[in-house]
């Protein structure tokens, strides 16, 4: 097994290299750089001053050299300096990454704790009123875009009822002087609305997937065999059918994880939640190329890791998939 993981990691390397080239040169193509910004802010800046700024960000060097310099830095964990914040991109991202990760994980938990029971029970009582209600719920979540649900949630639970905060990821005073538990509490309090928005909308696929799989598996021959053995319906359902039905879900789980991060752009923007999604949007607006590059690279790594996680899950749960 570990051999398989190692081999898959080795395949990822050339893929990452390619990604780095694409990411670097596409963000190079974005218009604007700090020297231009400086010029806009201070039209009276001298050529020397502009040249100095260009030098500081290696903008005076040919593109290929800039790429190798950037790659070398990236390998050491140095993603360069932000044009706008004038500090290390890596440090800037670290904070936001934690927030996004926290939001992502919370929405995953919400998604599974709502999606799995709904999927399992709607399949078990196929055609019942409950099943049809779930179907309606699915239509709803499928057709409502996240920015609409997000704004509604924000308006109702945030402003009208005032139950939850409307922006931020933690109460600043708690952040400065609270205990660990207070910090966690504040973080959870802040994450609930955005996490629910993202989580509920992702339940559709999981419910549909699970429901279809269970209904398909219910009619399989091995279920008949289990009945012929005299097995009780409950055990047949809970072990034989469910185990086989969760199989395809584990294969897409890895992609859910990346999906959560990628999808965070809209949610974080609506809830003014300081994660990488919102940060990413801001960075594009500010033409802050090093941040954009760093974030895209990070997302790419996440995607590759997501597919790796999926593969590992499939291999570990399905004996029919051979590792070698």
């Amino acid at each position: 097994m570990y051999k398989f993981i190692l081999r898959r990691l080795i395949i990822i390397l050339p893929a990452l290299f390619l990604v780095s080239i694409v990411v670097f040169f596409t963000s190079e193509a974005l218009p604007g750089d700090p020297s231009m910004q400086e010029l806009m802010n201070r039209p009276d800046a001298t050529i020397e001053e502009i040249m100095k700024i260009q030098e500081r960000y290696n903008l005076d060097k040919p593109p290929l050299e800039r790429y190798t310099l950037w790659l070398k830095g990236t390998l050491k964990g140095d993603l360069g300096k932000s044009y706008t914040f004038r500090t290390d991109v890596a440090n800037l991202i670290k904070e936001k990454m934690f927030n996004t990760f926290f939001l992502g994980m919370t929405s995953l938990v919400i998604m599974f704790s709502i999606g799995i029971p709904l999927g399992v029970f709607s399949a078990k009582y196929e055609g019942s009123l409950f099943d049809r209600t779930v179907l309606g719920y699915n239509f709803f979540t499928l057709s409502v875009p996240s920015f609409v649900l997000g704004i509604l949630m924000l308006y109702y639970f945030g402003y009208t009822l005032g139950w939850f905060p409307t922006s931020g990821s933690i109460n600043p005073s708690v952040y400065d002087s609270g205990t660990q538990i207070q910090k966690l509490g504040s973080r959870i309090y802040h994450v609930i609305l955005p996490a629910f928005t993202a989580g509920i909308l992702s339940t559709t696929t999981i419910i549909q997937y699970l429901r279809n799989e269970i209904i398909k598996n219910k009619g399989k021959d091995y279920v008949k065999t289990a009945r012929a053995k005299g097995q009780t319906e409950n055990i047949i359902y809970n072990t034989h059918i469910l185990r086989n039905s969760f199989l395809p879900i584990s294969s897409v789980l890895g992609f859910y994880i990346t999906g959560i991060f990628a999808g965070s752009v809209i949610t974080e923007t609506i809830f003014s939640y300081p994660g990488i999604g919102k940060f990413f949007l801001d960075a594009i607006n500010l033409r802050d190329t090093p941040i954009v590059t760093g974030l895209v690279l990070f997302m790419s790594i996440l995607t590759l890791m997501g597919s790796l996680i999926s593969d590992i899950l499939i291999v570990s749960v399905d004996p029919r998939v051979r590792i070698d």
Binding site: K220, D221, Y222, K224, T225, A226, A228, H240, R243, N244, L247, V317, D318, P319, R320
Partner: peptide, 16 residues
């Protein structure tokens, strides 16, 4: 009462 089925591959649970 025991039963033997036609298709031995599908009659067995693939994951067990």
């Amino acid at each position: 009462f025991g039963m033997i089925f036609q298709e031995p591959l599908t009659a067995l649970n693939p994951l067990v």
